Simulated assay, not measured.
Amino acid sequence: MRTLDAGALRALAHPVRVRIYDILSQRGPQTASSLAELTGESSGSTSYHLRALARQDLIREVTGRGTGRERWWERPAGGVSFTNPDAIRTPAGRAASQVVMNEFLGRRHEQLMRFVASSLDAELDEWSSNSLVSTSSVRLTAAQLAEVNERVQSLVDEISDRYRHQDADPSAALRSVSLRADLFPLPDESA
Rank of each mutant, 00 (worst) to 15 (best):
R162V: 14
D167E: 10
D125M: 09
Q56V: 00
I88Q: 05
L50H: 03
A142P: 05
Q144I: 01
R162L: 15
S190H: 10
A6Y: 06
E37M: 05
Y21C: 07
V80A: 11
H165P: 01
A117F: 07
Q30V: 01
S81D: 08
L179D: 02
M101T: 15
A52Q: 11
A87E: 01
H14W: 08
S119T: 14
A168L: 07
T67W: 03
D125Q: 08
I159F: 11
F82M: 07
V148P: 00
D86K: 11
S134Q: 10
V16P: 07
S128P: 09
V177S: 14
R94K: 06
L132R: 15
L174V: 10
S137N: 12
S171W: 11
A117Q: 10
P91I: 03
R2W: 13
A6T: 12
G66A: 12
D22M: 14
H49A: 05
M1I: 12
A146C: 12
L183P: 02
M113S: 05
G28D: 08
W73H: 03
R65Y: 05
S119Q: 13
A77N: 12
S178M: 14
A181W: 09
T90D: 05
L58A: 03
F104R: 09
S134H: 10
S160M: 06
P76M: 08
P91F: 04
I159V: 15
A173Y: 13
S154P: 00
W72F: 15
S118P: 02
A8W: 08
I159P: 09
